[in-house]
Structure formats: structure tokens, C-alpha cells
Nucleic acid binder design. Structure first.
Length: 789
DNA sequence: GCTTAGGTTTAG
């Protein structure tokens, strides 16, 4: 390092001093070629003492200790103090801290590796200041005086009971044979794990539980401030190797804890899959013996742990369940600081309708194909709290495993059955039950079936961009064979023949009028809120659109007609009277025997009219004026047909009453009655305004010309028939469930016409929903429950 | 500066 900085003073001075010192002293570190040399080639005057026998009061002159280097820290230097290096050596059951000072610290750092066997002499004994925390030996060895000497053998061969081979420098202790306060190397099969989570300290913590052929189960706690250093565990059954972890008894159970210099490597646990070590370190040791150890654990685990479904595909998800999901990220969007939305898929179709969380288009990173959402293939995952940090680093296209996802039905009320409630997926805050998420490398063998499935779907999805209209229709129109749950639910279909591609609302707004567009949107709000107000009267002649008069207004017209009540006589009619009520029928119709079909009624109130007309086919209320027959004011219906009422246009109807033209009419209905009377019949129409919204924009669209097809009712029926009114109400409730969020509203495929109208000299762009029909379940929620069972 | 957590469900 110093050589890289020629400006610095005395660049070589320290090195020269070191070399000089080494020459003057006895070499402090001796390497031996054979383990037995540690016992034979060291000075004979040194007497061996076992670590466990060391005491503060022990005489350490002419004594030596031998042990494996189980910890080796870095050389610590400061201006005030000489160089230091802390290590720990272990002999049988006991580990003791050793501190090397000065040049010895540097030499030890360069010459000795963890796992080496050392023989130390010339040490002094002091009290260990870290006994309470590291639970190692109460004493500490200090290697500082001029006599301090290290003999090292660095090609250790284990005689232990473990998974070793001749080339291995490591001994692996069976989990059942772990002793307290030892630094050990272990292999194990993961039976539980949590993704790393931040601690209250400086590190992230991974907690896991492992087992091995000895059948002992041991919890492990791994601390590291670098996320990348944590074990890359993707699922239960993975195999983990831990080096230099410390045993510790907690709550009566053996646990493993990372210590200085720990390391880890993990492997897929599936038998027959390639043994690829997963590690952030490029320098980990991995040889044939490790392959054998992994394979042995795989074989053992395959027999021990019953084959369990590793993760649950969307096609198997049930409401309320907690499950692990392996998937690909399509898009993500931040909801707020404590919540992030992930749109994911795994190539399977969920049997339940899936909640689509709508977010502003500019907030969405990545693209979620709407065609997939339509097929229940996109899961909307809401990631909360402590998981937001990790989720925000994800990029669309990544493969993920989400642990302990919660499938939540959106509507939890008693009234709505689960079968129609859209599912959302929550990764709740906290780490219990392993809640968390991880990225799985794309090349991971276990991902290959998933990737093949996604690719096959992606191929289909890309074809619809080829503008093949037939395929487009097939893709966007829910086929009858689709999941029954979806068919029970509510959706719309376009009935037009337009060969146009689906566009966004933002696109529609940019189009020049007039144009026909296909869109996919939700109903954010609607007007009028009182549905009786959506029924209008429309004159096809002058295009006047007026409200349907209420009974109060109509009754007044009848009262006005009664006021100047006088008999009237018309040459074309025969009249019969009873009290103040007169009935007129056409003479010509009497002759053609159709007179029962059309009755003119004079001198009745609205109530009486309703009673009488209920049993008649066509009744026209009339009044007399100067002895002549007149129709009532057009504020009242000019015709009552059963329970239906028909109105004439004030503008377009003949103002004077003339002899009805009855010739040639055999069956009388509202049209030929109107024609015979010179009345311009007004049509009933349903008119509503929907506020439509998609990911890109919102706009207000009218539905009226095709409203009857949309609602599957006749507007005239809704004027009189309760069932038809209920049907409109139910449909509107399905479009926008009362009190619901946008997320709960169904996506609608709509055909939209744009046009301009001029009003008060201003040109305004209007949108109208045409050629669209609602489909699905129109029953009320109460009935719905029955049908869902 | 040398701890942190120590499996066991949010409540959106």
C-alpha cells in the first residue's frame, strides 16, 4: 500500500526496521511440514499445557499450548499503540483468545490461516475481558515478549468424526455433537429460514434452522451488515455450509452464531440438480469432499423430508391461505412509504378473480399486460413495511420468491360470498413465518420450468400486438370455457364489428373526432345517482330530450281537463256516458270490429284513468273544448296502454285534434295510435353518464343510444316495470359497487364513439358508449349467495 | 463500536 504513494515520507523505513528486527531476534513463526513435527521439532524444554488447564495463576515460562486457529482477526494498528491481532485457538472442548503484538501480529497475519494448527510458547496469561460476551476461556494469551514463538502446521488433516476428505482443511461436526462455546464448521439442510432483516444494531440478521443426518435441529443466527454475505437460501431443503460459527446454548438448546471470520455457502437441495455453490465470496474453498457432503445430505433429506410442493402456483391459491409464490415481476409501483405494489405472474391462472390495483401510469415501473389480467394471471402483491426496502430494489423481469404471502379476499363482509370477491396478495410487515422476499437468479435450475411456461404465454401475448384482429378478439373476449367463477362475475363485451385495437383513455382524448375506439376502463362514478332520473323522453323528430313528468304534474293536467267539463260530440265517434265519465269509440273501428282496441276517455282523474286503462289495450284521455274533442296538454301522457304511458312531443305534434285515421289498422299500438292522432310519439330513453377511468386517464362518457342493449332492458319497460328498474339498479351496482374502491370495480371492455356538439357557440367533445353489453351475474347479492353455495 | 436475535402471521 505504501509503495503506491511515493510522496509519503520514509516509504520503506518500517519494512526495513521489521526485517532488521527479524534478523536480530529468533524467527518468531516457524512453519513445520508435518503435524507430528509440532511435537518433535519444537524445543524440548517447552512443556505442553492443555488450554482447559490454563489458569491466571499458571506458570507460563517454558510452557506451550497447541490448538487449531478457529478465529483470526485483522491486524489492528493505530498511532498510539503497536500492531495487534486477535485470534482464537481451540483444543478439544475449549477455545481461548490470543493477542499477537507488534511484528508478530503482522507475521501471524501473513503466515497463519484459519484451520491451521499452532503451537504457542513465550506467552503471558491475563484475564480475558470478553469472557462474558464470547464465553470463551476466562484467560487470554498475550504474545508480545521477545520469547513469543509460534510453530504452525498448515496442512491439517482431521481425525474427527466428520465429513472430510484428504484434501479438506475443514472438519464438519455433526449437529448432534456440538458442544457449547466451540467454533465449528457444519453442514445442514435448511428446515426454516428468514430472509435477512435489519437488527437494532448495525447488521442484518438471518435466522435459520438446520438439520443433518444426526437428526439434531439447530437454530443459526447470522449477522452481517452486508446483505450479500448472508446465505442465499431460496427454499426449505436447501443445503448450507457454515464455517467458523460459534456454538452457544440458548434456552437450553444448542445454537450457532456467526463469529469473526465466518463464511457460508448454500446449495440447492434437490437431488440430481447440479451442485452449484451460492456464495458472494469468490475465494471460498469448495472441493470434491464438499460435493460428496452436499450429495449425501440431499439423499438423506429426500428420504427424511416428505416431498412437499415447494411453492404454490396461482392456480392453486385459495382465499385466506398463506403461501410461497415463485414468480416473475412484471411491474411495480410505490403506493406510499410503507407499501409497494408488485404485479407478478407465474404463468398459471388463478381460479379466483384477482384484484387489480389501479395506479397512476407514471407511477408504474414496468408493464403489466392487460390481457394477462383479464385471464386472472396477474397477481397484485401489496408489500408492506420492512419488506418495502427490498422490494423497491427489484426490477421488472426479475424472478422472485415471495414468502408467506397472504391471499386476502377484498370484500370481507358477511353478505358477499368469497367466490366473487377478488383476491389480493399481501406480504404483511414483520418477519414471522419467514415473511419476506428474495430474488432468484434467472439461470437457477429450479426456475427453468417456470421460465418455459412464461415464454409460451409471452409468445401468445406478443401475437396480439401483430394486429391480428381475430386473435385479438379471441384473446380479449372471455371465452365460455374460462373459469366459471369469472363467468358468474360481471363483465362487458363489445358487439360491434369494428376492427380497431384497444387503446387507452389518454389515447382516446388525443383522437380527433369523430372516431370509434375500443377501451378498457372502470366506472369511477355515475350520474344520475337516483336511477329514476335516468329515464328520459326523446323526440326522434326534433331530438328534444325531456324529463318524464311525475304523477303530480300529470294529475294536475287531468284536473285542469275536468274543470271545464262539457259533453263533446264528434261525427266519427260513438259516445256513451256514465255519471261524468264519457267514453268515445270510433264508428269505423266498430264496423271493423277493432273498437275495443282504442278508447277515448273523458272526465276522469289520473287515478280513474289508471284503473280503467289497466284493463284496456289503448286509452286516450281527452277533454272537451267548445263541444269539440281535444287531447290533454302534452305534459300528460296522450296514451295509456296497460301499465305504460306514452307521451307526445309538444313541438312536433299537431296542435289540433282531427278525426283519427283508423283505416287499415288491425292491431293498435302506441305507434299507430300516435300516427292516427297526429301525435309525434316520444321515445323512452335511458341516459346515464359514466366517469370512466383507466391507468392513463379518465373521461365522462354517456350511455343512451345503446343503453337498452347495455342494460338488457327496454327503456319503456323501466318506466313501468319494477323488475326492469331493479335490473338497471343491479347493473349499476355491479359497475360500481356501492361504497367500493376503484380496485373493486370490474374492468369493462367498451366501444366508445367520440363526437362534437355545439352548445352556445362552443364546440364540445362528447363520448358515448355504444355497441357494448353487460354480461355475467345480474342477481342481487342475496340471490348470489344462494347460487354460490 | 463489538450489538444485533433467539422462527410462530397483518389486521393495510
Amino acid at each position: 500500500m505504501r509503495r503506491q504513494n511515493p510522496q509519503e515520507k520514509n516509504p520503506f523505513r518500517e519494512d526495513l526496521t521489521m526485517q532488521h528486527a527479524n534478523v536480530l531476534r529468533a524467527m518468531p513463526i516457524h512453519t513445520v511440514k508435518c503435524a507430528s513435527d509440532l511435537d518433535t521439532s519444537v524445543p524440548q524444554h517447552l512443556q505442553r499445557i492443555s488450554i482447559s488447564d490454563l489458569k491466571l495463576t499458571s506458570d507460563c515460562v517454558q510452557r506451550s499450548v497447541k490448538g487449531e486457529v478457529v478465529q483470526k482477526g485483522p491486524v489492528v494498528s493505530s498511532r498510539q499503540r503497536e500492531h495487534m491481532l486477535k485470534a482464537a485457538i481451540q483444543d478439544k472442548d475449549t477455545s481461548i483468545n490470543v493477542i499477537f503484538f507488534g511484528t508478530l501480529a503482522k507475521d501471524f497475519s501473513q503466515t497463519v490461516r484459519q484451520g491451521d494448527i499452532v503451537l504457542l510458547s513465550g506467552f503471558t496469561i491475563s484475564k480475558s475481558p470478553t469472557e462474558q460476551t464470547d464465553r470463551l476461556h476466562p484467560c487470554l494469551l498475550e504474545m508480545r515478549c521477545i520469547d513469543a514463538c509460534v510453530h504452525v502446521y498448515s496442512s491439517f488433516v482431521s481425525a474427527g468424526p466428520a465429513v472430510v476428505s484428504s484434501e479438506s482443511r475443514y472438519t464438519y461436526v455433526p449437529l448432534s455433537e456440538l458442544k457449547p462455546s466451540r467454533i465449528v464448521n457444519v453442514y445442514g439442510v435448511v428446515t426454516f429460514f428468514k430472509q435477512p432483516f435489519p437488527t437494532k444494531g448495525t447488521d442484518y440478521c438471518s435466522t435459520l434452522k438446520i438439520t443433518d443426518q444426526s437428526d439434531a435441529k439447530v437454530s443459526c443466527t447470522i449477522f452481517s451488515e452486508r446483505l450479500d454475505d448472508h446465505p442465499k437460501i431460496f427454499r426449505i431443503g436447501d443445503i448450507i455450509r457454515l464455517h467458523r460459527v460459534k456454538t452457544q446454548v440458548f434456552n437450553g438448546s444448542m445454537t450457532l452464531l456467526t463469529t469473526l471470520g465466518w463464511s457460508t455457502v448454500t446449495f440447492d437441495g434437490m437431488t440430481d440438480s447440479p451442485i452449484e455453490p451460492r456464495s458472494s465470496s469468490r475465494t471460498f474453498h469448495f472441493g470434491e469432499s464438499d460435493k460428496r457432503a452436499v450429495e449425501a445430505l440431499r439423499q438423506w433429506a429426500a428420504r427424511q423430508i416428505p416431498a412437499t410442493e415447494p411453492t404454490v402456483p396461482l392456480s392453486s391459491v385459495q382465499t385466506k391461505m398463506f403461501f410461497d409464490l415463485t414468480c416473475q415481476l412484471l411491474a411495480k409501483a410505490s403506493i406510499d412509504t410503507r407499501c409497494i405494489l408488485l404485479k407478478v405472474w407465474d404463468g398459471t391462472k388463478c381460479p379466483h378473480p384477482m384484484l387489480n390495483v389501479a395506479v397512476a401510469p407514471d407511477a408504474l415501473e414496468g408493464e403489466a399486460k392487460t390481457s394477462l389480467a383479464r385471464e386472472n394471471m396477474i397477481a397484485n402483491v401489496l408489500v408492506y413495511d420492512n419488506h418495502v426496502e427490498g422490494a423497491s430494489k427489484l426490477k421488472p423481469g426479475m424472478f422472485l420468491r415471495l414468502f408467506n404471502l397472504h391471499a386476502v379476499a377484498q370484500r370481507a363482509s358477511e353478505e358477499s360470498a368469497d367466490c366473487v370477491s377478488p383476491l389480493s396478495f399481501h406480504l404483511h410487515g414483520g418477519t414471522s413465518y419467514g415473511k419476506g422476499l428474495c430474488v432468484i437468479p434467472s439461470e437457477s435450475p429450479e426456475l427453468q420450468p417456470l421460465k418455459r411456461l412464461l415464454e409460451s404465454h409471452a409468445a401468445i401475448a406478443s401475437e396480439d400486438i401483430v394486429n391480428d384482429v381475430t386473435l385479438l378478439e379471441a384473446w380479449y373476449t372471455p371465452p365460455e370455457t374460462l373459469g366459471e367463477e369469472l363467468n358468474k362475475d360481471f363483465y362487458t363485451v363489445r358487439t360491434c364489428e369494428h376492427t380497431v385495437q384497444q387503446v387507452t383513455l389518454a389515447h382516446v382524448k388525443r383522437c380527433t373526432t369523430p372516431v370509434v375506439c375500443h377501451v378498457r376502463a372502470k366506472v369511477k362514478s355515475y350520474q344520475p345517482q337516483n336511477l329514476y332520473q335516468c329515464l328520459k323522453l326523446f323526440c326522434p323528430q326534433c331530438t328534444a330530450l325531456v324529463e318524464v313528468p311525475n304523477d303530480e304534474v300529470i294529475a294536475r293536467v287531468f284536473q285542469d281537463a275536468l274543470r271545464g267539463h262539457q259533453p263533446c260530440s264528434e261525427h266519427w265517434a260513438v259516445t256513451s256516458s256514465m255519471d261524468s265519465i264519457s267514453m268515445h269509440v270510433s264508428c269505423e273501428m266498430v264496423l271493423s270490429n277493432t273498437h275495443t282496441q282504442l278508447l277515448f276517455l273523458q272526465g276522469v282523474t289520473l287515478e280513474e284513468m289508471c284503473v280503467i286503462s289497466a284493463a284496456q289495450s289503448n286509452v286516450v284521455p281527452v277533454r272537451s273544448e267548445d263541444g269539440r274533442m281535444r287531447l290533454l296538454d302534452f305534459s300528460a301522457p296522450f296514451l295509456f296502454r296497460g301499465d305504460k304511458r306514452y307521451y307526445g312531443c309538444k313541438q312536433c305534434s299537431r296542435s289540433t285534434f282531427v278525426e283519427p285515421e283508423v283505416c287499415g289498422v288491425e292491431i293498435w299500438d302506441e305507434h299507430n295510435v300516435a300516427k292516427a292522432l297526429g301525435v309525434q310519439l316520444m321515445q323512452y330513453a335511458l341516459l346515464m353518464k359514466f366517469e370512466l377511468e383507466d391507468e392513463t386517464d379518465s373521461l365522462e362518457a354517456l350511455i343512451w343510444e345503446d343503453a337498452e342493449r347495455f342494460f338488457h332492458v327496454s327503456a319503456a319497460d323501466t318506466s313501468a316495470c319494477q323488475d326492469s328498474q331493479d335490473k338497471v339498479q343491479t347493473t349499476v351496482d355491479r359497475l360500481h359497487p356501492p361504497g367500493s374502491s376503484m380496485a373493486q370495480c370490474p374492468w369493462l371492455d367498451l366501444c366508445l364513439c367520440t363526437y362534437t356538439v355545439e352548445e352556445n357557440g362552443k364546440i364540445q367533445v362528447c363520448y358515448q358508449i355504444t355497441n357494448t353489453e353487460t354480461r355475467g351475474n345480474f342477481y342481487t347479492p342475496q340471490r348470489d349467495q344462494l347460487s354460490c353455495g
